[in-house]
């Protein structure tokens, strides 16, 4: 019963995230936090079903652990809904029509998906206790550690994900339009940081680094003043001034250039 409820919760959250994927331009923080909540709920679900382990549970785990985890998943769902209500959205201020940032948003979304999948896979399949021990007490000269094979096991566990991430990032770089390639390069760097985090194991600061790049990416791909769009050699469409955009009520040209005005002052037809 718990499993069904959790599956429903996560499914609905993913649908809600997908429904507003184009609105993550002005305020990406809450959207990324919602993505984080879904990842955390999935991780807690895996732990509930004994498909993964976590050192925090060894520290605090009690007989009521499953009910506590279920309660935390429900609390995260409430938080998800609250952040959705608080989301400022685009406030109708972005004159760019949907799809104008298509290729770059596609790349950013693909990389964010890879990033999330990477975290989920690593969290669910790697032995976190060993990761923790390795990151804190690794001493390659210690025969006990080498006997347990923590370091080789860690490397073998992380390398497939690192390889998959590198391949996905290279494909994204190749597929990106030329003006957006530096951005795809930034995302490639994000993948490298994620990989380094996996190899160096569990650290909050390192785990926040990919999120940093994701935030910067989402903001820069969406902002009206996006630098790459201003520098783009692609005329019209990529500068945002298409007829469809100018016809939209959100389009606000300078008052000085409006018809019937001189330097912004209304001019009577009688003049």
């Amino acid at each position: 019963m718990h499993d069904l409820a959790i599956a429903l919760i996560i499914g609905v959250e993913l649908v809600l995230l997908a429904a507003r994927r184009r609105r993550a331009r002005r305020g990406p923080a809450l959207r990324l936090f919602q993505l984080y909540l879904v990842a955390a709920q999935t991780m807690a679900w895996l732990v509930m079903n004994d498909l993964a382990s976590h050192e925090m549970l060894d520290l605090y785990g009690g007989p009521d652990q499953k009910n506590d985890l279920f309660l935390a998943i429900v609390a995260a769902a409430v938080l998800f809904l609250a952040t959705r209500l608080l989301d400022p959205g685009d406030q109708g201020s972005d004159p760019t029509p949907a799809g104008a940032h298509g290729p770059v948003l596609l790349v950013a979304t693909a990389c964010a998906t890879v990033w999330t999948a990477l975290f989920l896979l690593a969290m669910s399949t790697l032995d976190l206790e060993r990761l923790w021990a390795t990151s804190h007490y690794l001493d390659l000269t210690d025969p006990d550690i080498m006997t347990r094979g923590a370091a080789p096991g860690l490397a073998l566990g992380a390398l497939p994900y690192a390889g998959a991430a590198a391949a996905a990032m290279a494909a994204a770089l190749y597929a990106a339009p030329r003006p957006g390639r530096w951005l795809a390069g930034l995302l490639l760097f994000q993948g490298a940081v994620t990989t380094l985090w996996l190899l160096a194991a569990h650290s909050r600061a390192a785990a926040l680094a990919p999120a940093t790049f994701a935030v910067l990416t989402l903001v820069w791909t969406g902002g009206r003043g996006a630098r790459w769009r201003r520098l783009s050699p692609w005329p019209g469409r990529w500068r945002g001034a298409t007829p469809a955009v100018m016809a939209s009520p959100a389009w606000r040209p300078s008052p000085a250039r409006l018809p019937g005005r001189i330097n912004g002052c209304p001019v009577s037809p009688a003049m």
């Binding site: 984080y36 709920q41 976590h54 549970l57 652990q65 985890l69 935390a72 995260a76």
Partner: peptide, 9 residues
């Protein structure tokens, strides 16, 4: 990264 949900639990 997701240890927060366990602390919250």
């Amino acid at each position: 990264m997701t240890e927060g949900i366990f602390a919250v639990a």
